[in-house]
């Protein structure tokens, strides 16, 4: 009898210890995020003002703002979206609605997974060899945008496919039974229903694009440009690359530090906003559908 009680006690103690430990680790994760965020926010918040956001760097990067980098990142987002959004969504549609189940689908899915696993520096290497050299785009917005577009393609494809998969076949059958063609069904019924999740995926892919450095190192990023890019074959400055540059090079690191903190904070805010937007979109559409 004693043994059983002891066993029960021990059993519950182990559970307490184990669950206590996993809780502790989870709290630690939150702690790490809080430390990183608050460090950058505290150091960077004093730097950010309208002038910082709206002027170009001056005096060898030690003064002035990061306006060209913000604009550059915006261009890159736009450029990659122009390419990756339609292609990604269409690819997702093909996989869920058209692709023959079995080998073809498995093959495409594996390839998409493989693409998403390729390190970003390899994308950079490929972008330089293919877009910059082979297609002769030079280091330019086009080359950078396309490289970034390829990078976020798997994410868009996967979210689109999942979004469409979640829609029950009865809707498709109902629509077809009413005499709609497959394409009409797709555009009138399936896509509107899948939209919330697709849009969320798109927004998250924008987040990915805006933070990547390695793919743009050799395809489009510029250290400093005296004026904004005037064409798609110009180089651009971009936020993540700008942070890298002012954190590691330049004449006067001490004077550059505040700008580095400011740039890091702007990047973090961008990521926060994008995540928030994704959540809001998801909730808004979910409510609307109900």
């Amino acid at each position: 009898m004693d043994d059983t009680i002891q066993y029960e006690l021990k059993k519950n103690l182990t559970q307490k210890v184990a669950f206590g430990a996993v809780t502790l680790f989870s709290v630690a994760i939150v702690g790490i995020l809080v430390v990183i965020l608050s460090f950058i926010i505290i150091k960077g918040v004093g730097v950010i003002n309208w002038e910082f956001l709206s002027t170009a760097p001056t005096d060898g990067m030690t003064k002035g703002g990061i306006f060209p980098a913000i604009v550059g990142t915006f261009y890159l987002i736009l450029g990659s979206a122009l390419f990756a959004f339609p292609v990604g969504i269409m690819s997702g549609i093909y996989m869920n609605e058209y692709a023959p189940k079995g080998f073809v689908l498995r093959f495409i899915r594996t390839m998409t997974n493989n693409l998403s696993g390729i390190p970003s520096i390899v994308f950079g290497l490929f972008g330089m060899a293919f877009f910059v050299k082979q297609l002769n785009f030079g280091t330019s917005i086009v080359a950078g945008s396309l490289t970034l577009g390829l990078l976020c393609l798997p994410l868009i494809i996967r979210t689109t496919e999942e979004a469409l998969k979640a829609i029950p076949d009865s809707y498709r059958e109902g629509s077809r039974a009413l005499g709609a063609t497959k394409l009409q069904t797709l555009f009138r019924v399936i896509l509107p229903m899948g939209m919330p999740n697709i849009v969320t995926g798109l927004i998250l892919s924008v987040g990915r694009v805006s933070g990547e450095t390695a793919p743009i190192l050799f395809t489009c990023a510029a250290f400093f440009l005296p004026q904004l890019p005037t064409g798609i074959f110009d180089q651009v400055m971009a936020l993540p690359y700008h942070l890298y540059v002012i954190a590691t090079s330049g004449g006067d690191l001490e004077a550059q530090r505040p700008i580095a903190y400011g740039t890091a904070l702007v990047l973090i805010i961008l990521v926060l906003l994008i995540n928030l937007l994704a959540t809001v979109v998801r909730r808004y559409f979910a409510k609307k559908l109900k």
């Binding site: 993540p240 890091a264 973090i268 990521v271 994008i274």
Partner: peptide, 9 residues
């Protein structure tokens, strides 16, 4: 968020 923070940050 942890996965969203850019690697350069």
């Amino acid at each position: 968020l942890l996965s969203g923070i850019p690697s350069v940050v």
